[in-house]
Amino acid sequence: MSAISASQARHQQFVSVQQLTSLLDAEPQPRKKPLPPLRLTRRGRIVLIGIPLIFLAALLLSLVGFLNAPAKAADSAAGLALTPTVSVTVQGGESLWGIAATVAPERDPRDVIADIVQLNNLSAGTVVPGQQLFVPTK
């Protein structure tokens, strides 16, 4: 230990040859070039601007439709009128079309059928024999 004192020997580190060669071979990384500014293509503009505009238009149209829909039948109970109806029993072979033509021959049968379906809460336009239906008379 003639050349190195005891205090220097404590601070001395041993480095392997592979670590030393890797440190010497490592060159500083060149600086990366800054990215060019973002450019939107035609398709990109459509996606970025067009699709949100379509969603906004659909939202506005549904909101306008919701606000303009008739929400109530009358302003007060005095303005309500009962629909005059007759109770009819469906016979075998009868259809809603035949019942509508018999009850209101002056009206379009499609309108009368729509009224019958609404009055009786029918899910389909079919009836079965023996079924009781409320049919509008006017």
Rank of each mutant, 00 (worst) to 15 (best):
M1K: 06
S2M: 07
A3E: 12
I4Y: 02
A6G: 03
A6W: 06
S7H: 05
S7V: 06
Q8M: 15
Q8K: 07
A9P: 01
H11L: 09
Q13A: 03
F14M: 00
S16A: 05
S16E: 08
Q18R: 13
Q19F: 01
L20W: 08
L23W: 08
D25H: 11
D25F: 13
D25N: 12
E27K: 13
E27Y: 08
E27I: 15
P28E: 04
Q29W: 02
Q29K: 06
P30E: 13
P30N: 15
R31W: 04
R31I: 05
K32M: 11
K33T: 09
K33E: 15
P34R: 00
P34Q: 00
L35R: 09
P37L: 09
P37C: 03
L40R: 12
L40T: 10
T41H: 13
R42L: 06
G44A: 07
G44H: 12
R45D: 05
V47T: 11
L48R: 14
I49A: 03
G50S: 03
G50R: 01
I51N: 01
I51G: 08
I51Q: 02
I54P: 02
L56I: 12
A57P: 01
L60I: 08
L61F: 04
V64W: 02
F66M: 00
F66N: 07
L67F: 12
L67A: 07
P70G: 08
A71H: 14
A71I: 05
A73L: 14
A73F: 07
A74K: 13
D75P: 07
D75K: 07
A77V: 14
A77G: 12
A78I: 02
A78M: 00
L80E: 09
A81Y: 13
T83H: 06
P84A: 14
P84S: 07
T85Q: 05
V88K: 04
V88I: 03
V88M: 10
V90Q: 15
G92M: 10
E94R: 00
S95I: 05
S95M: 07
S95V: 01
L96S: 04
L96F: 05
L96W: 00
G98I: 05
G98H: 09
G98M: 06
I99D: 15
I99H: 00
A101I: 04
T102Y: 10
V103F: 06
A104R: 11
P105I: 01
D108Q: 03
P109H: 04
R110C: 01
A114W: 05
D115Q: 05
D115P: 14
D115Y: 06
I116Y: 02
I116F: 03
I116N: 02
V117Q: 01
V117F: 07
Q118K: 14
L122Q: 12
A124D: 14
A124C: 11
A124I: 13
G125H: 07
G125P: 04
G125F: 14
V127G: 02
L133G: 07
L133K: 11
V135K: 00
P136K: 02
P136L: 00
P136G: 09
